[in-house]
């Protein structure tokens, strides 16, 4: 197996295959991740999340172009939901990221969330690791901010950008969605539309009211991703957040937190995967019937799954 060798030599086919192996939970993928672990930790990692249709992919394309102009290589992982009904997925984020398709120093990978048994965050974080180990200077992870997934990806990146549009509703809703807590930078995209100013003011006020003992107050920026308006300000804000992290050993703190989260998430995944083997899926179906027949309570059924069948 010369995959590792080819990966180290910078063969993008090897990177692509490595991602597939990791995504499919293959042992080979695990081995490769272990082998390249020493090479990780160099990339600037950026997360970008927000509701569907907010223009995340176009913003990512803008980031790609900016970083490429600065001579840096870029890796992107774009995550879209898998249909819970069919198990399939339509991944279309690439369309918006193709202005540098001929550029070998840009690598874009689309990923589906797959299944409801978790594991997405772990896989996406693994892909971030691989892109980092492959030597990408900047790694960007794009996720749809409608579920739990974005919260897990947050742990694997240095800076999280939350993108909203003027139509996203008011700032209260943003807060309700829990996006307030994860954002290091807010972007109000499609700022040429009505309501962008109100959104910015509302968010700003909300951020100022927070009583958090932090010196980083997430900036609220306006962009029009399709025309590139506001991109330089976003790049500046990203640079500032990076400087902020570099001071007072914040980056070490971040790394500890990231690694801890990574380990915990792997443990959870392992437990989950292990747990549902051993015929428990079948047992579950049986218990569902018993609960429906009011012979057991749901809590009772859960306990029953832990005891040997």
């Amino acid at each position: 197996m010369d995959l590792i060798k080819r990966f180290r030599k910078g063969d993008r086919l090897a990177l692509a295959r490595a991602i597939t192996l990791v995504e499919n939970g293959m042992q080979e993928g695990r081995d490769l991740l272990d082998a390249v672990h020493p090479q990780t930790g160099k990339a600037r990692r950026i997360g970008i999340t927000g509701p569907p249709g907010a223009g995340k992919s176009t913003l990512v394309d803008g980031l790609i172009q900016s970083y490429r102009k600065a001579g840096q290589s870029v890796g992107v992982v774009a995550v879209d939901p898998t249909s819970p009904f069919t198990g399939g997925a339509l991944l279309g984020d690439r369309i918006r990221m193709q202005s540098r398709w001929a550029d070998r120093r840009v690598f874009v990978r689309s990923m589906a969330t797959r299944g409801s048994w978790g594991g997405l965050a772990a896989a996406a974080a693994d892909v971030i690791e691989l892109l980092d180990a492959f030597g990408k200077d900047v790694v960007i992870a794009e996720t749809v901010g409608v579920g739990q997934s974005e919260f897990d990806v947050v742990d694997a990146v240095h800076t999280t950008i939350v993108v909203i549009v003027p139509e996203s509703g008011d700032s209260i809703q943003v807060m309700k969605a829990g996006l307030m807590e994860i954002a290091d930078i807010f972007v109000v995209n499609k700022a040429d539309r009505e309501g962008a100013g109100d959104m910015e003011t509302g968010l700003g006020a909300m951020l100022d009211m927070r009583d958090r003992e932090e010196d980083w107050r997430p900036p609220v920026l306006q962009t029009v991703a399709t025309s590139g308006e506001g991109m330089p300000t976003l790049i500046d804000a990203l640079a500032q957040h990076r400087e902020y992290l570099a001071k007072e050993s914040r980056i070490e703190e971040w790394e500890r937190k990231a690694v801890r989260a990574r380990i915990v998430s792997l443990v959870h995944e392992e437990l989950r995967a292990g747990f549902w083997k051993q015929g428990r899926q079948a047992r579950l179906e049986q218990l569902v019937g018993e609960v429906l027949a009011r012979e057991r309570t749901p809590g009772d059924a859960a306990q029953a799954l832990f005891s040997p069948a």
């Binding site: 992919s57 279309g92 984020d93 369309i95 918006r96 193709q98 202005s99």
Partner: peptide, 8 residues
């Protein structure tokens, strides 16, 4: 130039 937006 205009680019293909993804809409299904």
């Amino acid at each position: 130039e205009y680019k293909d937006p993804k809409f299904f």
